[in-house]
Design a binder for these strands. Structure first.
Lengths: 252, 252
DNA sequence: CGGGCTCTTGATACGCCTCAATGCCCGTGG
DNA sequence: CCACGGGCATTGAGGCGTATCAAGAGCCCG
């Protein structure tokens, strides 16, 4: 509904031969299915690249010839309707594997929302890698299952939650995910714009903004800067996210 | 939002030793990854059952100890909020594999919406089967990917489509899926109630009903009976589903 | 110290939900 | 065979939450 998608081009290309060894994302990603002594094999087919904000590297409807592993930064995945309405189906960060498609074409578009680094794998090369390392295929199945679970949760959000609950869910999820890779503070970062949050939650920019402002005036969050939120009452947020808002219905 | 979920119990248990050979769903399901001569192995761990409408066989939050393959009939998969709001994340028919979970617990509830037949697999037995037949694991990954694509499409529907577009999408999808397993007529069956359609599309019963009535009065569909729809203009429906409704905006 | 963003805030409109009544279908029993 | 009852579906009237439209405020960067 917001933003019109930009030009699809790939740039840069740094890194050396066996870059996989020193890859930050390795332990988080499916690549950890491959032992340290086989990393050369992996590095041989992994093609590292660097992209800037706004660059599209997977485009809905285009032939699915490559697969990607995000090694740094965040991307958004989205689908669009012909009139420009847009639904972001997820944000993918470091360690995320993208482009798994049975079909001949991609089902969504992927675009960097900040400077990112990623590894590209061509379809046939990934295929041989999968054949040689069955553990990798198992890991892929695992991550696919986890994504399915997340997708179902998001359907519940989009189909049945109020704006208030959606925003609370979004903050709560960001909170719990950020806490898995760093010290647990109430502070979370939002690398995406309000428009992107809105397109992710099935709302408008204005509603997202109003809801955040309301949380702030209720003393539940603080907004120190444009892209940071401080959760002053995480437990309360979780309740709202789950539909347990005390200020909602519940006529007891 | 509608309906309160019923009691969880499993009943019946027909069929003989090597039932897999004569299973209607075999060719459609992941079981087709196993050759005919190994079907005995499969049959040994597949536990067939019969369930009636309303019976729950997977319950959100419960330990994920079994996996299921639907061999006949239709089930609904849903998630619920504590106050009863419900989102159906999908309908699964013959050949559909269910319960794939990495987590210790199920992420959704599965309930028969008509009399069904299914096969149950215990987790450890499925595990050994997967180890012995890598092709089965590949098939599972394939189906998981397909479900992810469907889930993303549904997120677009729930987040950005109007009621009109949602109902049109629903009919169009049912149409194209039914045509893959039978003669291509404009007639589709709806084994689910209006309430279930509503919970699938993120709408209310009334809105679903009104929208169908409106399509009918516009001459685009016919409603010969409660659970049947005749598509009189499939192409038009597809356009509406894709957000190309001529009667909507588009101020040209 | 403007220019162009994104974000916030306000006023109003509208689509869908809610509540309520009626209609239809079908199984049950007289 | 028909009256009755209970589900489910349809239809109507009105309200609410979020979208839409429109300024204005804050921020970054040259």
């Amino acid at each position: 509904m917001n933003t019109l998608s930009p030009r699809p081009v790939i740039v840069a290309k740094p890194s050396s031969a066996s870059h996989c060894i020193e890859c930050d994302a390795r332990h988080r990603s499916v690549c950890n299915a491959i032992g340290e002594r086989d990393l050369e094999r992996l590095a041989a087919v992994a093609n590292p690249r660097r992209l800037e904000r706004g660059q599209v590297f997977i485009e809905e409807g285009r032939p699915a010839i490559d697969f990607f592993n995000i090694t740094s930064g965040t991307v958004k995945l989205y689908k669009m309707l012909p009139d420009g309405r847009q639904q972001i189906t997820g944000f993918a960060g470091s360690g995320h594997f993208l482009g798994l498609a049975v079909s001949e074409t991609y089902a969504f578009t992927a675009e960097a929302i900040e400077p990112i680094e990623l590894c590209r794998f061509s379809r046939p090369k990934l295929r041989t890698l999968l054949d040689d390392f069955p553990a990798l295929e198992k890991r892929l199945l695992e991550t696919a299952c986890n994504e399915l679970v997340a997708a179902q949760e998001q359907m519940l959000l989009l189909g049945r939650k109020t704006a208030r609950e959606r925003v609370a869910s979004f903050l709560a999820t960001r909170y719990s995910e950020s806490s898995t890779c760093g010290p647990l503070s109430g502070r979370i970062s939002l690398p995406m714009t309000r428009a992107e949050i809105a397109d992710y939650l099935g709302l408008t920019i204005e509603t997202v903004s109003r809801t955040l402002t309301r949380f702030k005036s209720e003393g539940k969050i603080a907004l120190p800067s444009r892209d940071e939120v401080e959760l002053l009452d995480p437990h309360w947020l979780l309740d709202v996210a789950a539909g347990q808002d005390s200020r909602a219905a519940s006529f007891v």
